[in-house]
């Protein structure tokens, strides 16, 4: 028996919005420690890794490890039927081929349930090596989304250059060149407005705007985003999900032909 309950359906809606542009379907691996999802996008350029800890749920029970392959378009249709403040409960029997998603209004006067067919997805799991990153940048998630959106107008690629002075995002194309520099913030009133750079070594890497913009669909989940970079390895873009877990996106850099 698997049962996981969250106080607000809005969190699940935001999580789905954060992955459904990259993934058509994905396997939710459930164990007593929580729910994990790891999947590459169709072009195998990026990888999504979602962790939801069992202690972040209002109720969590998982008697046996369970892998639930879900069509994310179908799941989106179901979540559209929930009000943001509804409780949401996911339930499945051991070895079941369906999952039940139930919504309850705050006053419990409206209860709806949706049974969704599960899929057998043959997804490979990748081992992600530990990396000592040369640069780790923490910045407001909205600012990162804005920069990715703005620079995508000028080029398919963005160059991220991180030094101890700050982080620079650049794009160059037919129109010309765009550069956006962010310095580390001095003192800020609010922690969520801070730009913090931890640099061991300067690093310059090139990434596809299209994927960065897809990652920023996670912006509603978190006030801050963390970018971890190291020469010749994938960028890690991480959004914390408060009291529940995190979503990490890995993006292969563009390299010299």
């Amino acid at each position: 028996m698997f049962e996981a309950r969250l106080g607000q359906a809005t969190i699940l809606k935001k999580i789905l919005d954060a992955i459904k542009d990259l993934l058509n379907e994905a396997t939710f691996d459930c164990s007593d420690s929580g729910i994990q999802l790891q999947a590459m996008d169709n072009s195998h350029v990026s990888l999504v890794s979602l962790t939801l800890r069992s202690d972040g749920f209002d109720k969590f029970r998982c008697d046996r490890n369970l892998s639930m392959g879900m069509n994310l378009g179908s799941m989106a249709k179901i979540l559209k039927c929930a009000n943001n403040e509804d409780n949401v409960t996911m339930k499945a029997q051991d070895n079941a081929d369906t999952v039940t998603i139930m919504f309850e209004s705050a006053n419990q006067e409206k209860v709806s349930d949706y049974e969704m067919k599960l899929m057998n997805l043959d997804q490979e799991h990748l081992g992600i090596p530990e990396t000592d990153f040369s640069c780790v940048v923490r910045m407001p998630a909205m600012e990162f989304a804005r920069i990715c959106r703005d620079l995508a107008q000028f080029s398919e690629s963005v160059v991220i250059c991180c030094t101890k002075e700050g982080v620079k995002f650049s794009a160059s194309g037919d129109v010309g060149t765009a550069n956006i520099k962010l310095a580390q913030t001095g003192s800020v009133d609010k922690e969520e407005e801070a730009v913090i750079i931890e640099m061991q070594e300067p690093v310059t890497l090139t990434f596809a705007c299209r994927y960065l913009n897809a990652f920023t669909k996670a912006t509603p989940l978190s006030t801050q985003v963390q970018l971890s970079m190291c020469a010749d390895v994938p960028l890690v873009v991480e959004y914390a999900i408060k009291d529940l877990g995190h979503i990490r996106y890995y993006l292969a850099p563009k390299i010299e032909d």
Binding site: H44, S46, P234, K254
Partner: peptide, 14 residues
């Protein structure tokens, strides 16, 4: 010219 690599080149199959 820079080209897009695959994420597979960086991670190993489990």
């Amino acid at each position: 010219k820079k080209v897009q690599g695959s994420i597979r080149n960086y991670f190993t199959s489990k």
